[in-house]
Simulated scan of single mutants.
Amino acid sequence: MADHTATPPRGPAAAPPSPRAAGPDAPSGGRPAGAGRVALLVGGLVLLAAALAAVSVLSVCFGARSVPFATVVDALTAYDPADTDQTVVRSLRVPRTLVGVLAGVALGLAGTVMQGVTRNPLADPGILGINAGAALLIVFAINVLGIGSLSGYVWFGFAGAAVATFTVYGIAAMGRDGATPVRLALSGAAVTAALNSVTTAILLTDVEAFDAFRFWQVGALAGRGMDVALPLVPFIAAGALLALLSGRLLNALALGDDIAAGLGQRVGASRIVAGTAVVLLCGAATAAAGPIAFIGLVIPHMARAITGPDYRWVLPYSALLAPVLLLGADVLGRIIAHPSEVQVGVVTAAIGAPVFVALIRRRRLAEL
């Protein structure tokens, strides 16, 4: 009797799908996220949003002046200008909290985008000369133009950050290979050193400029009113939209320029879009609150520790983690030195350094 058992077809067998077959959108190992994992990550975002709301309430309630919680509620719902406590809440604490939220969102997203674009796990606002550019034009505004108010020189800080960033990118883009990650880092270091030397030279010759500048340089949320907070909104909103939409671009760039180009990405255009987002976000935040340390450096690593390497999740997590940390540090600075306060830039550095060391010990930071 003839054997009717089916025999496998001859010829080359079908190859198993490549781990990269899912493309840069795959969150880990090329496998698409399951519904359970997506639900878990969405739940994490909800919890972070609740944490941000809670720390915002604390930021409005705590300060050098003791204000009852009922008075805080009245200041927000039934404001009485004759009540001094309500005036403190409305004119000082609410704008300060708003600036903290805006600056936190901006620094978290900007740090994440910068690390993705440069493929450098140590990238922060200083690597592209943002802090140095903002500092130089602020000193120029104080020393040459005689501008002494924060609301006056904040625009010079923003312009300086933007000019420095585009200068760094222009220098890095010279040559056949274009703006590679190494070129960006080297040109950023060179421009930062040059700008810092000019800033220092001006400050050494003008004591008044130094006194006004050092309050901005330490990084602080105190003294920021609505005249500073509201102008930041359109810049940070536009930058945040660009950053959140760049998740696929950053996933592709993480695979390397050649692979990203092979996947159909225009590498140069992608970097320009991401760089524009960084300028809008980090320029506005640095100009308003000063060069706050460690937020843009640590937050992306914290987000990746939770979500994995997929930038479509890393970006929204960074946008919520950063203001929670920034406002929490600001509240802590008010509590530990009551009735005075420790500036938030000092507190974030004290918190961020050990957190970053712990992340270094747990994870290989080079794997972006």
Rank of each mutant, 00 (worst) to 15 (best):
G247I: 06
R248T: 13
R248C: 10
L249T: 10
L249C: 12
L250G: 09
A252M: 08
A252G: 13
A252E: 03
A252C: 08
A254F: 02
L255M: 08
G256L: 13
G256E: 14
D257F: 06
D258V: 07
A260T: 03
A260F: 11
G262I: 11
G262T: 11
G264Y: 08
Q265L: 13
Q265K: 10
R266Q: 11
V267A: 06
G268C: 10
A269R: 14
S270P: 02
R271G: 02
R271L: 06
V273K: 07
V273C: 08
A274T: 15
A274I: 15
A274C: 14
G275T: 13
G275L: 14
T276D: 01
T276K: 02
A277P: 09
V278L: 08
V279E: 00
V279R: 00
V279W: 01
L280C: 09
L280F: 07
G283A: 01
G283C: 00
G283R: 01
G283D: 01
A285I: 01
A287N: 08
A287H: 14
A288P: 09
A289D: 08
A289R: 03
A289M: 08
G290L: 11
G290I: 13
P291H: 08
P291C: 09
P291M: 09
I292L: 12
I292R: 05
F294K: 00
I295V: 10
G296L: 02
G296F: 00
L297E: 04
L297Q: 06
V298F: 06
V298W: 02
I299P: 05
I299F: 09
I299R: 05
M302G: 08
R304M: 01
A305S: 15
I306Y: 10
I306F: 13
I306N: 15
T307R: 07
T307N: 07
G308P: 06
P309W: 05
P309T: 10
P309N: 12
D310A: 14
D310S: 10
D310E: 09
D310P: 14
R312K: 15
W313N: 11
W313E: 14
V314I: 13
V314F: 00
P316N: 10
P316C: 06
Y317A: 03
Y317H: 06
Y317N: 03
S318A: 15
A319T: 02
A319E: 01
L320V: 11
L320C: 12
L320T: 11
L320E: 11
A322F: 01
V324P: 08
V324S: 05
L326Y: 10
L326I: 14
L327E: 06
L327F: 10
L327H: 05
L327D: 04
G328C: 05
A329W: 00
V331P: 14
V331F: 15
L332N: 13
G333C: 08
R334F: 04
R334G: 03
I335C: 04
I335M: 07
A337H: 02
A337C: 01
A337R: 02
P339S: 03
S340Y: 12
S340K: 02
S340R: 08
S340G: 14
E341N: 02
V342M: 08
Q343C: 05
Q343H: 10
Q343I: 06
V344R: 05
V344Q: 07
V344Y: 03
G345Y: 00
V346Q: 02
V347E: 04
T348M: 02
A350K: 07
I351V: 15
G352L: 05
G352I: 04
G352Q: 04
A353D: 07
A353V: 14
P354Q: 14
P354V: 13
